[in-house]
Design a protein around this nucleic acid. Structure first.
Lengths: 344, 344
DNA sequence: TGTGATTGGGTCGTATTATGACCCTGTTGT
DNA sequence: ACAACAGGGTCATAATACGACCCAATCACA
């Protein structure tokens, strides 16, 4: 039996304590310097509790607290990295990954602890984990497709800057311009490309354009160039969204929303809307990767977290059995819950 | 950094909790079935505290509590073994051993956690640890000398029964009959011999006999046989006593006690009284191993615990630098304290 | 230079928990 | 039958954690 499980058995109290302090440390690290009250806000904990805990952490030499706020000491920063592994084991993340892999029947599942719906740090973690995974499998002369969304924006944000392979090309996997520039696939592709010291192409095409305009756009050399690359992608990293939320974000017409409801769309990825079995129920008319191309890409990596994304993840997992899903604990547990209910 | 140290840093509370529960579990194991009140007595803890803790342990499925008392579950028993290592690391026993080895300037030091003055379980542990160590280094055709005392009695008690080598002989390292048969070297030698499936010889000689009688006894074939073996010993396992306490236990005359005080005797082993530097200040006139023989024996293993034995252990360690000392945490810390004070 | 938003630290009443000091009843071994 | 021991119940009290405030100092920004 592992050391952690052993302790969990004999001193079960440590679980909450350890996680609480871990969260405090992490939140200080990501927001330093930060005050008591702001921290209490972020963690949804009473201010006084923060105080008690921080006093202990201070006593242990992990945080310093001055009049500008609280900061981690060097020791605290070192500690937090090792703590990651403890938390993983404490929560049984490895077992969770294995279980989820079996349930979704896919090649690889990576789970980060926490719930990205409730904590932005978990979203960061997911982004970081995705980045690290990508950097591991990336090879020379790789063409990598990227989609938009807040999750993918976070991946770009957390991507460590490092030239890890030669002649990498980053391209947006589909057109579509959201309101927020930060979460557009174009911006994200550019950001990732810069971090990886790679070249990139942009795809400036709006969503939902009519067939005629589309054909016209395809004649443009700038766009044509990218479209040709779309079929040569070696890797695609994409966010997974909820069908209903994505529909409202994109201001789809009432008719289409009705259609999506009727056909029980639950998930969205690269402009395609899927039901829980992975059937395409509708797709946006824009320039971008097709489902057929998607299925042929060597490495497909989907990223999404939060329990709300559970069904969407299930839908996308049905598309290919050699897909990699990177998600969080909350989504993983929710998926397991859904499957358990269904089989009962 | 090790997992334990990491946790000690971030959740320092667990230290006492873990140790408390460890002690409770151990005491239940060694005394099962045992009641709340008896247990509280043994551990010097309030009865109510035991109740709170046991409730948690019960909830965790580590102890069962019926109307005959409390017992460990199988899981609890499994746990306790792994816990040993955690406690060792928690207390930094390895570091302590290293430090003590350097201070005493001897070949090998083994420390068991706890204080054998305060807990009989620690004495058991020391006995068990000694037994295991002996069984590791024992070889075929070995002649092993044994002394008396409560510590050595515990070694015999905890010795696992196993024939681990051929043609082993166990002999008492010196004569001397105490009041309590159980702690006489004869009984202990016999007990150990039986457990190890070895042969043994006895040495029925009283303490403090005059020279003439001594010479007479040496003519007896039974005694002569053992005495000849004394010089052929391959290993000696001996308890270490405090000079003053041993003197009073043996009812030494006031003159001799005065002498021991004058010459600053602090330790006793195999009938010899030593000052802190390892000089013999007095020895009992009886049949048994001489200091010269002792220094020639291949393996010398001294066992003693409790802070009161600190100086005695220091004295005996000065005799040989290839001696092995098996002691407990309390004695180890006390020795370090004494040396620190002396060097300041 | 003022002003509002933070910051850490102080304090105090209250809720929660741990603990000590008992009681009771049942079982067991003598 | 009795003494010794077992667990469980109860309650007042001590220790602790916590929420809800206050204050003065500091900082960013207008």
């Amino acid at each position: 039996m592992s050391l952690i499980k052993l302790q969990k058995k004999i001193v079960p109290e440590i679980v909450e304590l350890l996680e609480l302090r871990y969260n405090i440390l992490r939140n200080i690290l990501y927001n330093e310097p930060i005050g008591r009250r702001s921290l209490a806000m972020k963690l949804n904990i009473g201010e006084r509790t923060i105080r008690t805990e921080v006093n202990i952490l201070k006593k242990q030499g992990l945080v310093t607290v001055g009049n500008i706020g609280m900061q981690l000491t060097e020791e605290g920063k070192d500690l937090i990295e090792n703590l990651d592994n403890i938390i993983r084991e404490l929560r049984g993340i490895s077992e969770l990954e294995k279980k989820l892999k079996d349930i979704l029947n896919i090649k690889r599942v990576i789970v980060v602890p926490g719930n990205s719906d409730k904590s932005e740090l978990v979203l960061s973690d997911m982004g970081k984990t995705t980045s690290i995974y990508i950097q591991k499998i990336i090879k020379d002369d790789c063409i990598i497709g990227i989609t938009g969304g807040t999750t993918m924006a976070q991946v770009a944000e957390e991507m460590p800057a490092a030239k890890i392979a030669k002649n990498i090309q980053i391209i947006p996997a589909r057109g579509g311009l959201g309101k927020d520039v930060e979460t557009q696939s174009n911006s994200i592709a550019a950001k990732i490309a810069k971090k990886l010291n790679a070249t990139y192409k942009l795809l400036h095409v709006p969503d939902n354009i009519d067939q005629k305009t589309l054909e016209g756009l395809l004649e443009l050399p700038d766009i044509k160039e990218v479209v040709e690359l779309l079929d040569k992608m070696d890797m695609i990293i994409f966010g997974i969204g909820r069908a209903d939320i994505m529909a409202s974000k994109r201001n789809l017409s009432k008719d289409i929303i009705k259609l999506l409801n009727e056909r029980k769309a639950v998930g969205e990825a690269f402009g395609h809307y899927f039901d829980i079995k992975g059937n395409v129920v509708w797709k946006m008319s824009t320039i971008g990767i097709t489902l057929e191309s998607f299925k042929k890409i060597k490495s497909a990596i989907g990223v999404a977290g939060g329990e709300s994304k559970a069904e969407a993840i299930m839908a996308i997992s049905s598309l290919r059995d050699d897909i990699t899903i990177i998600t969080d604990e909350a989504a993983a547990n929710k998926i397991i819950e859904i499957v358990n209910k269904a089989t009962k």
